[in-house]
Simulated scan of single mutants.
Amino acid sequence: MANRAYCLVLPVILGGLLLKLWEPQAVSDSLKVRMNEKTQIVSFNANVIINCELYDFHLLPLEINGIEVRWFHRRTNSANEVKVFEYYGGKQTSFRSGASISISGLRMGDASLFLPLIQLQEGGEYRCEVIISPNRAQATSRLEVEAQPSSILLPQEVVVQEKKVFTLECIVAGFYPEPVQIIWKKVISGTHSLIVDNSEAINISSNNDGTFNATSHLILQPLLEDNGTIYQCVVVHKSLLTPLQSSTTLIVTELVKSTDVEKTIMYVLLIVMVLGFCVWFFVEPFAKGNTQVTALCRWSKDWWRQGLRQHQALRLQQRQLSRVVRRLFGSNLRHRVQ
Results as ranks from 00 to 15, higher is better:
Q25F: 02
A173H: 03
Q25M: 09
L316Q: 14
N3V: 07
A313R: 10
L54N: 05
N3R: 13
T191L: 10
W304L: 10
L31A: 11
I204C: 04
D209H: 02
V235F: 04
E262H: 06
T39Y: 08
S28Y: 14
L168C: 00
T215K: 15
S193L: 08
L194S: 11
I195W: 01
Q245N: 09
L241T: 13
I13G: 02
Y176I: 10
N227L: 05
V272L: 15
N208P: 04
G289K: 09
K83Y: 03
F282Q: 05
H311V: 13
D197K: 11
N332S: 09
V325T: 03
S322I: 12
R319W: 14
G98S: 03
V279P: 02
T264N: 04
A2C: 06
I251F: 01
V268H: 07
N332L: 08
P134M: 07
L168W: 07
L255G: 00
R298L: 14
F57P: 05
L241D: 09
K83A: 13
R70G: 04
I230N: 07
G16D: 00
V159C: 03
A99Q: 04
L59R: 15
Q245R: 04
R74G: 10
L10H: 05
S102V: 06
L328K: 09
L308H: 03
N203L: 15
D56F: 15
P116C: 12
G174I: 00
A214W: 10
I271H: 06
C7E: 14
R127G: 09
